[in-house]
C-alpha cells in the first residue's frame, strides 16, 4: 500500500521530467525553429510547380493563347467560376467564325478542383503559382484571362 503510494509518486515525477526534457531540448536548440519570417522571405519563397494558386491562361511572346472559346471549361466548372463570352469574327477566308472575346474567371468562387484545366481540349489553361490573392475590393477577384488584343495561336484545333 505505502510502497505503491511512493511508487506512484516517483514514477509520476519521472514521467513529468521526461516531458520537461523534451521541451527543454527544443528550447536550447534554436536551430529547430521552423517558422519563417514571411514578408521578408518573399524572394526565396517559391511555390512548387504543381501549386494551385489560380487559373491562368499562358500567352506566348506574340500575345497569342490557345483558347478557342469552346466552353468545355465552363461546362465542367462545378460552381460557375468561369464564363466565356464569344464574338463572331470574319476570318481571312471570308467565313464568320466564333472566337473568344473574354474568358472571365471568378477567383472568389473557384474551389481549385482543377477540372477546367484537366478537361481543356487545347491545353489553354494552366495553374499559376501566385498565392497572395488578398484585395480590398472583391470585384478585383473577377479576372479576364485572355489579354487585351490577344489572338488564338495558329494550329490550335477548333
Amino acid at each position: 500500500m505505502i510502497k505503491e503510494y511512493f511508487k506512484d509518486v516517483f514514477s509520476g515525477i519521472a514521467s513529468l521530467l521526461r516531458g520537461m526534457k523534451v521541451t527543454l531540448s527544443y528550447f536550447v536548440r534554436p536551430s529547430t525553429i521552423i517558422t519563417q519570417k514571411y514578408p521578408e522571405n518573399r524572394a526565396e519563397l517559391k511555390m512548387f510547380e504543381a501549386f494551385r494558386g489560380e487559373v491562368v491562361m499562358p500567352h506566348n511572346e506574340n500575345n497569342e493563347h490557345k483558347c478557342t472559346g469552346c466552353g468545355i471549361c465552363e461546362i465542367n466548372c462545378p460552381n460557375g467560376s468561369i464564363e466565356i463570352i464569344s464574338k463572331f469574327e470574319v476570318g481571312e477566308d471570308g467565313k464568320k467564325r466564333k472566337v473568344i472575346d473574354q474568358h472571365i474567371y471568378r477567383l472568389a468562387m473557384c474551389t481549385f478542383c482543377g477540372l477546367c484545366i484537366k478537361t481543356c481540349p487545347s491545353n489553354a489553361l494552366a495553374w499559376g503559382q501566385e498565392f497572395e490573392h488578398a484585395v480590398f475590393d472583391r470585384t478585383k477577384l473577377t479576372k479576364v484571362l485572355n489579354q487585351e488584343g490577344s489572338t488564338v495561336q495558329k494550329g490550335v484545333k477548333e
Partner: peptide, 13 residues
Amino acid sequence: RVCAFMQCRLGPN
C-alpha cells in the same frame, strides 16, 4: 518568447 522557443517558433519579433 520562452513558449515560442519551446514550440519551435520565433515568437514576437
